Amino acid sequence: MPTAAVTSTVFARARSGDPAQQAFLLLRTVFTVAPIAFGLDKFLNLLTDWPGYLAPWIDGLVPGTAQQAMYAVGVIEIIAGLLVAARPRWGALVVAAWLAGIIVNLLILGDYFDVALRDFGLLVGALALSRLAAPRRLAAEGEAR
């Protein structure tokens, strides 16, 4: 099926009240928009002072300043969000892996355990999105499971 037909099928199933399809669309939307928004904010520092979240030993590994490292982080997050939009099954796994790295960084810092726990919840949500995306893509394209 062409992409437009697949998209039409996805939205038709969501409108029909399929809870799994609705959950898929909700998670796909959040894991597309949030990484892009947070990635853009790495350039603006409106939400917080992002370089303060970078563990000193990681800052020592990457060239440049902590802010320059955050620019790279922002680019990666924007790409991850776009990947979720285009290929949710695989993009969600990229986001989950990225969140795992963030969690490790935060635990090493030792000051942001609450944020690490929140990010763990997001990681689980990203894994759920990947699982929800797998059968939907196959069903929408008419392939055998």
Score class of each variant (00 low, 15 high):
Ile78Phe: 08
Tyr112Met: 10
Met70Glu: 08
Pro56Trp: 00
Ala116Asn: 10
Pro135Asp: 06
Val33Asp: 01
Gln68Met: 10
Pro35Tyr: 04
Asn45His: 05
Gln68Thr: 06
Pro56Val: 10
Gln22Trp: 02
Gln21Cys: 14
Gln67Lys: 07
Ala66Cys: 13
Ala126Pro: 02
Ala34Arg: 04
Val95Leu: 12
Arg87Asp: 07
Val75Glu: 06
Ala133Leu: 11
Gly101Asp: 11
Val6Tyr: 05
Ser8Val: 01
Ala96Phe: 06
Gly17Ala: 12
Gly91Met: 11
Gly74Trp: 10
Val124Ser: 03
Leu61Met: 12
Gly52Lys: 10
Ala126Gln: 04
Thr29Ala: 15
Ala92Met: 03
Lys42Gln: 14
Pro51Asn: 07
Ala37Ser: 03
Ala37Asn: 02
Gly60His: 08
Leu127Ala: 07
Tyr53Phe: 15
Gln21Ala: 14
Glu143Tyr: 14
Val33His: 00
Ser16Trp: 07
Gly121Ala: 12
Ser8Pro: 01
Gly64Ala: 11
Asp111His: 06
Arg87Trp: 13
Ala66Ser: 14
Gln22Leu: 15
Ala69Asp: 01
Ala128Glu: 11
Arg87Val: 08
Pro51Trp: 09
Val10Thr: 15
Ala128Tyr: 08
Ala34Gly: 00
Leu82Glu: 06
Val104Leu: 15
Leu129Ala: 09
Trp98Ser: 10
Glu77His: 09
Leu26Tyr: 00
Arg13Glu: 14
Ala144Gly: 13
Ala34Glu: 04
Ala128Leu: 13
Leu127Met: 05
Val30Thr: 13
Leu47Trp: 06
Asp18Ser: 14
Trp90Lys: 12
Pro88Gly: 03
Leu129Gln: 04
Gly101Leu: 08
Phe113Glu: 09
Leu47Met: 13
Arg137Ser: 01
Arg136Ser: 01
Asp41Phe: 10
Val115Arg: 07
Ala85Gly: 09
Thr9Met: 05
Val124Leu: 15
Tyr71Glu: 05
Ala86Phe: 09
Gly142Thr: 02
Val30Ile: 15
Pro51Leu: 07
Ala37Thr: 11
Leu25Pro: 01
Ala20Pro: 02
Pro2Lys: 15
Tyr53Gln: 04
Gln67Tyr: 04
Val62Gln: 08
Ser8Trp: 01
Ala133Pro: 03
Pro19Val: 10
Leu54Arg: 03
Thr29Arg: 00
Phe43Val: 09
Asp114Pro: 00
Gly64Lys: 08
Val75Trp: 08
Leu61Lys: 01
Pro135Arg: 02
Ala5Gln: 15
Phe38Ser: 13
Ile102Met: 14
Ala134Pro: 02
Leu93Lys: 07
Leu26Pro: 02
Asp119Asn: 13
Ala128Pro: 03
Met70Ala: 06
Arg136Leu: 13
Asp18His: 13
Val75Asn: 07
Val33Met: 03
Val6Met: 15
Ser16Lys: 14
Ala128Trp: 14
Val94Trp: 09
Val62Phe: 14
Val73Lys: 00
Gly81Cys: 09
Ala92Gln: 01
Ala23Pro: 00
Glu141Val: 06
Pro2Ile: 10
Thr48Gln: 10
Ala20Tyr: 02
Gly110Ser: 10
Gly39Arg: 03
Leu25Asp: 12
Ala14Ile: 02
